[in-house]
Design a protein around this nucleic acid. Structure first.
Lengths: 196, 196
DNA sequence: CCCACTTCTTGTCATATGGCAAGTAGATTG
DNA sequence: CAATCTACTTGCCATATGACAAGAAGTGGG
């Protein structure tokens, strides 16, 4: 039984050796489907769910002081999806998380996650690893934001995450890169010239 | 005894109730002093120490692709100081951490920290809280980098962390804000005009 | 006390990017 | 199928910021 949760178990397999513990972990996750354009989390609500995305494509975004949407993250299949601040601090979220394609994932509540966290050392290690990796990725992005031109940042994204560019609309990619859609359109033109 | 470690105990007091546990935590920390301009961590080395800064002022910085220093963080007295990536993943650090004034702090090794982490639930909670808060702060900074002008970012920093502006040289503040020292100098001039 | 060094300012000019508006082409909906 | 939308591109001009260089003022070491 619980073979449908193979995805969840696979996610923790590298960090958790014993099958019984994997079963215990998997038992706390529940399937969740989100239609395209629907939300996993809305700004203002307090996040209750930590989701492992099995299939689909999502983004997180918030509103800047002028009321414009700023895309803060893209999530591919295989990744954990949640708002760190709201989920761990039980505060109303400053961002929303939206499906850009039909999504299927597995969710766990804060309490259940905390129970696992405190009862399974291996689970803690995996959890800490996820936080640390997210932190490191964000720092890299910040450094690139400070030191590189928008064109260079786009080119890097093109190399490292081509799926994003295939699936996300230009305006989301643009705000993720910190520029306007107009500028990104021009950057694309420049880059395509060079490729000829 | 160990009363000199009052600072360490005070740091964990809010999260750890029992005095014996505070003693146990404090016993793993060792005093460390760093002269002005000396380093807690050098790029390329693997971080071995997690430090609580009791007094002094520090910064973290790394080199961009063109070889310019980029200041990535400032640390005031009372804050934990360490490179998340290097300390937790045991990888060579991509940044250096330097004292901008004579510093005194308390350090703990990764192994000792991990022991506490796995044996004291309260310690884990505090540890996770530190990571989460750092994450949230970095996200806010990223959002501000994307949506606000350098002048607005400087004005905000001026409000939230005036100590930084008092103690750090202009060029470090500038690269922290993602601009050149030249631009920051001009921004200062503009702001001082307005104040008249 | 002097010399070198760093810090900060300022000028001139170049460039990356934004704001706004128009236009095309697809996609979506009633 | 017409009527809207949304996504993307492009042009024109404005502006924020960078690059480089010079100079003033402060700082530290011998």
């Amino acid at each position: 039984m619980d073979n449908e949760k193979a995805f969840v178990k696979r996610f923790f397999q590298a960090g958790v050796a014993q099958p019984e513990k994997l079963d215990m972990i998997a038992s706390h996750f529940h399937e969740k489907r989100i239609d395209k354009h629907d939300h996993l989390l809305l700004e203002g609500k307090t996040s209750q769910e930590y989701m492992l995305l099995e299939s689909g494509f999502m983004r997180a975004y918030s509103l800047d002081t002028a009321g414009n949407e700023v895309t803060t993250a893209f999530y591919d299949a295989g990744q954990p999806v949640f708002d760190v601040a709201s989920f761990f601090m039980h505060t109303p979220s400053k961002e929303s998380i939206q499906a850009l394609s039909p999504c299927k994932g597995w969710v766990i509540t804060f309490n259940d996650l905390n129970t696992l966290f405190h009862s399974l050392p291996e689970f803690r290690e995996v959890g800490r690893g996820i936080l640390v990796k997210g932190f490191v990725a964000l720092k890299l992005r910040m450094q690139s934001m400070i030191t590189e031109t928008a064109e260079a940042r786009y080119a890097m994204l093109l190399q490292s995450n081509p799926e994003i560019l295939m699936q996300a609309p230009l305006k989301h990619i643009a705000s993720y890169l910190g520029i306007t859609d107009t500028s990104l359109s021009r950057i694309r033109r420049e880059l395509s010239k060079q490729h000829k």
